[in-house]
Design a protein around this nucleic acid. Structure first.
Length: 462
RNA sequence: UGCCGCAUAGCUCAGCGGUAGAGCAGCUGACUGUUAAUCAGCGGGUCCUUGGUUCGAAUCCAAGUGCGGCAGCCA
């Protein structure tokens, strides 16, 4: 079994007739008198290869083992298919069964399974149509991300997973420790973290941003792309405890440049999957969300709307909508507000900028009005906030006074403050949640269905 | 974490006070090329758990557990 061989995707694009071998997992088998049809898939593309077995070509005792879920190889001739439904098919002459799958207990079926049930068999759901399509698209989004930034001269930075600063403001963190939880060392009644692995408290990162800012101050244009962790007790179809985030950071870039990058990046990703995942997207459009293709073309072609927070509040106040949460200057935008703006009022992605400083993070650059900061959120129909970014505060004194206002300790951020002391460039960046983007592109309704093995409160199986 | 909903065959569900049903899947067979094939037959159940109401509970009530939706926190 050499590693260089044809995928089913390649066979389907080949010119028949030719000898061929097909490796994969059996989706279904249909028998008629004198002939059997096997749908074989190896994950390389949405379409299955139809394998045709004429009566007598393969011993009945072997053919019986070709059941849904079984892992097999067929050898034979790839020929033009006489029936409609596929261009080519494999006329099989030999069969090797690598792994049987007991049809009475194999849980994947060709019909009728709910996403809730499939989450219980996350190790097997990837063999089905929907999750095959989901993870091919996820793969393409990942590669497109690297290509987009590589083509624009960005450096890929591996920011740490374990972080010592515990108060970044992005939410509750998972603590990392090797202390014996049954017998925690204490000094004056408090936990003695000097005996912990790192000699201090440590956590899983909630964002690579602070680290990637340091690299932007040396390599100009950088990005990080990796897992991040939030210990929030969030039970929604849009939140995970472990998710993947893409965070570019640019020196010599203000909030306008940041918005331009965000818009170009989203359009690039959308165009990429339209070009490279056609069959998968058509499946989503047909079976999951009938507006997906239309939405993606729309996003790729039309400019995003850009409005300030202050103007957004005016639009909401003038809307006449019966919002559950009151709208006033200074309020945070709730889901219902975001949905009104992006779905009802504007009908495509909207970038909202210049939020009140009170509802945004300490590191965002203070505007001259001293009431708002240079934040920008990209809101998208169906899913709400997909990107959050800002121009960063590069003025040392302003940053320190902002931290004081929020009672943040300086010590854990001393290195971050150093970046403002020594050769600080104006800089900007944003974070894009890969899974949020996945939901947008595929139309999948639950974030647990766009990540291979999800982690949420109360659940870390597989 | 709050509010709401759901839990019956392997899966998707119906039944909603009188003792367990359908479709799909599985198994057996039929059919000369099927496309989520079709047709016939067969097997398959602690009706989530515990307690209560009742002559009688899958069905009504309560608590627990699990799952889902909405909201908050955010990406």
């Amino acid at each position: 079994m050499d590693y260089r061989r044809s995928y089913i995707r390649d066979l389907l694009a080949s010119e028949p007739p030719m000898k061929a071998s097909a490796y994969g997992w059996v989706k279904t088998r249909r028998d008629s008198k004198g002939v059997s049809f096997v749908q074989l898939n190896d994950g390389s593309c949405f379409a299955d290869l139809q394998v045709v077995i004429q009566e007598g070509a393969i011993p009945e005792s072997e053919l019986r083992r070709v059941t849904t879920g079984a892992c097999v190889r067929f050898d034979g001739m790839l020929v033009q298919s006489p029936a409609s439904g596929q261009a080519v098919e494999l006329q099989a002459t030999t069969l090797e069964v690598y792994g049987d799958a007991d049809p009475a207990s194999y849980p994947m079926q060709k019909k009728g399974a709910s996403f809730e049930f499939l989450r219980e068999i996350a190790h097997l759901r990837v063999r089905g149509n929907t999750f095959g399509a989901v993870f091919r698209v996820r793969n393409e989004l990942s590669w497109a991300t690297h290509k987009f930034f590589k083509d624009r001269g960005f450096m890929y930075v591996h920011t740490p997973i374990i972080s010592a600063s515990d108060a970044e403001g992005a939410g509750a963190m998972f603590q990392v420790t090797t202390l014996d939880l049954e017998n925690v060392p204490r000094v004056d009644g408090k936990v003695d973290y000097s005996q912990d692995f790192f000699g201090r408290q440590a956590f899983l990162t909630v964002s690579g941003q602070l680290n990637v800012e340091a690299f932007a101050q040396a390599f100009t244009n950088v990005y990080t792309f990796g897992p991040t962790f939030r210990a929030e007790n969030s039970n929604t179809p849009r939140h995970l405890a472990e998710f993947w985030m893409i965070e570019p950071e640019q020196a010599f870039c203000d909030i306008t440049g940041n918005m331009n990058l965000a818009e170009d990046f989203l359009k690039y990703l959308v165009s990429h999957v339209l070009d490279h995942c056609r069959a998968d997207l058509e499946f989503f459009n047909q079976r999951i969300e009938p507006t997906v293709l239309e939405t993606l073309h729309h996003v790729a072609e039309s400019p995003f709307e850009r409005i300030t927070y202050t103007d957004a509040i005016k639009l909401l106040e003038a809307s006449g909508e019966p919002f559950e949460f009151p709208v006033f200057w200074g309020c945070d935008l709730q889901s219902e507000h975001e949905r009104y703006l992006t779905e009802k009022k504007i009908g495509r992605p909207v970038i909202v900028t210049d939020y009140p400083k009170e509802i945004k993070a300490f590191y965002m650059k203070l505007n001259d009005d001293e009431r708002t900061v240079r934040a920008m959120d990209v809101l998208a129909p169906r899913i709400g906030e997909i990107i959050g970014g800002s121009q960063r505060e590069e003025r040392y004194d302003v940053l320190v006074s902002r931290m004081k206002e929020l009672s943040l300790p300086e010590e854990p951020y001393s290195w971050y403050l150093d970046l403002r002391k020594y050769g600080a460039a104006p800089h900007s960046g944003f974070g894009l949640g890969l899974e949020r983007m996945m939901m947008y592109v595929t139309g999948m309704k639950n974030i647990r269905d766009v990540i291979p093995f999800y982690r949420v409160p109360g659940s870390a199986e597989f």
